[in-house]
Design a protein around this nucleic acid. Structure first.
Lengths: 202, 202
DNA sequence: CCTACCGATCGGTAGG
DNA sequence: CCTACCGATCGGTAGG
């Protein structure tokens, strides 16, 4: 009975496990995140760590949620004060580029990495990653559609294709920063995004 | 002495190990490629497999070389008959998109996957991946520069930025096909590439 | 939240 | 190219 902690303490422990997990998984991947390593770094036993989640897959899903909160706070929320449509899309893209530039996750975009790690492995983690990308693309497409409808982007602009291109710019930037260690590429990304997010009259 | 094979047989065995390795690593990653699994699938002993390479890292480097040969044959060589500059760049991009569409590597672009897997792990594998991307980008940039110099692309086009954007389109396509199973995105990729590879007069 | 343990698998080696 | 083996580590469980 003595090692049992209060509910508040247990939640705090859980949160600290997740924070450490995000840090590890960012560099090593969600599979490279092991219970044993977590236990050592947190000065806990393996069963103490696993007890909070049950299985490694449940831990991975919780880590994905935690990373999602961070992405939302870093990229989505800064754009909410901006007017829907082109203005918000521009703020969104700048926050996105900045998020990659500042290496909010030291191993690069958490979700792109998870997508590559799990796209060939059916299961709950793969489904969660796919769903998150679907939500993100839908959000971007919604703003793109508003911008086109408002005449802020050239008539005939395909929102789906625009979002596809924006995803590409983010992925190329992520890749260049992480593999080549070249933050200079952020200039390319900004120029490319700017070229696509310019009103027809300009 | 009896299990020893001739040099030719040994080379054949080595080639079959590499082909199987490429297939496995395409889906599971270069770390998910294990000696034990290779041995089972090839009906060999683990030491029989490892003997051809010495260490797992040497095997990974050899697999990367083999994947490089495939990429070269699928994407680079088809573009050699085309005239240097814009024409070759266009053939190159179409072969690149087709390579992703046809899933030459069932797990998606081998090098993008390897880049994500190793960009946080210093070592020979990471260096080899980075070097391969450098060579690829340099080849694309060379054709882009020729196209700009020949007036086939708008004056003032930055070859570096153009290559950055082409990398982005390929990565977005790879991601969409592998994670969302949506080959329709190849249309977006072709449209986007076309928009960037259009002569100034057109 | 712990100790103690399980079977499976990892990369790699010795010796032939 | 094999058998037989090494220490380390994996996710997970029993029992408290």
């Amino acid at each position: 009975m003595s090692p049992r902690r209060s509910v508040a303490e247990a939640l705090g422990t859980r949160a600290s496990i997740l924070d450490r997990s995000v840090a590890i998984a960012s560099m090593e991947g969600l599979e490279g995140l092991t219970i044993g390593r977590l236990a050592i770094e947190l000065s806990m036993s393996k069963s103490g760590v696993l007890g909070h989640f049950g299985t490694k897959e449940a831990l991975q899903l919780a880590v994905l949620d935690r990373a999602g909160e961070i992405f939302r706070a870093e990229v989505w929320e800064p754009a909410l004060p901006a007017a829907p449509g082109l203005a918000r899309l521009r703020v969104l893209c700048e926050a996105w580029i900045s998020y990659l530039e500042r290496r909010v996750f030291p191993g690069g975009c958490f979700f792109v990495a998870a997508a590559h790690e799990f796209d060939g492995r059916p299961g709950a983690v793969r489904d969660a990653v796919e769903s998150r990308f679907g939500v993100w693309r839908a959000r971007l497409a919604k703003e793109a559609r508003r911008a086109v409808d408002a005449g802020e982007l050239p008539a005939g602009t395909d929102p789906g294709r625009l979002v596809f291109e924006l995803m590409g710019m983010a992925m190329a930037l992520n890749h260049t920063i992480q593999l080549h260690g070249d933050p200079h590429a952020a200039t390319y990304a900004r120029e490319a995004v700017n070229a696509r997010l310019t009103p027809p009259s300009a």
